[in-house]
Design a protein around this nucleic acid. Sequence first.
DNA 1: CGCGCTGTATTATGTCACTGATGCACCTTG
DNA 2: CAAGGTGCATCAGTGACATAATACAGCGCG
Lengths: 113, 113
Amino acid sequence: MTQQSRPVYLKLRDQIAAAIIEGVYAEGEMLPSVRAFAAEQGANPLTVAKAYQQFQTDGLVEVQRGVGMYVVPGAAEKLRRSEREQFLATEWPELRTRMKRLGIDPAELLAHN
Amino acid sequence: MTQQSRPVYLKLRDQIAAAIIEGVYAEGEMLPSVRAFAAEQGANPLTVAKAYQQFQTDGLVEVQRGVGMYVVPGAAEKLRRSEREQFLATEWPELRTRMKRLGIDPAELLAHN
DNA sequence: CGCGCTGTATTATGTCACTGATGCACCTTG
DNA sequence: CAAGGTGCATCAGTGACATAATACAGCGCG
């Protein structure tokens, strides 16, 4: 038996990405510190740092040494665009064929909003 | 750096499930042997066996020792129903909120077939 | 300066999913 | 019975993931 549970640092990454897009962490503001966010989520600071690192290398977050990590202006829209494109190009086609195979009616999906 | 690529046995599982639903592996017929399918897919026989096992425990496939694994009558519909339900109950809600966040209109996607 | 807060590098440890190589038990066929 | 096919159990190796314990470097504030 197995689990295949999504790695913690990826869950955190998605969670943070959603928060940035939704403006929970507004542009120009500071992200929660590694230690603070780790304590809040019950995770290890290193794991949180790993999640943060991806945003940093993508230029969505700027690090001020000794201060914290700040959301770069335009990060929300940039994130939304890239994820949107990725979704449309990769995930949606697969979903489409899969829904067809499962006999799922698109109209039915939109019904119960 | 990491990978987090979908495990091989899960890819195989999905592939086989799709084949059963679509009738590629018709009910009453025998699935490809573990070794044959492994050679065809360039995988390890044990990995294939792991993929097969789930169908076996779900009663979708019947094992005849020393002979092979046969698709149980009604397996296709049973599979379609369970996957369909799982999709509607679990995946679609998440997709829904995610698409909303990315500014994607579900109706528009479903429209142009 | 001194204290406390930031992120980060280092090293080490432990766990677990995944994959693989080998051998065995079972069945069919000749 | 002998041969070749089946699934399956056993044991082992690998790497990702997570955690831990420190330590260090930079910044702000009193």
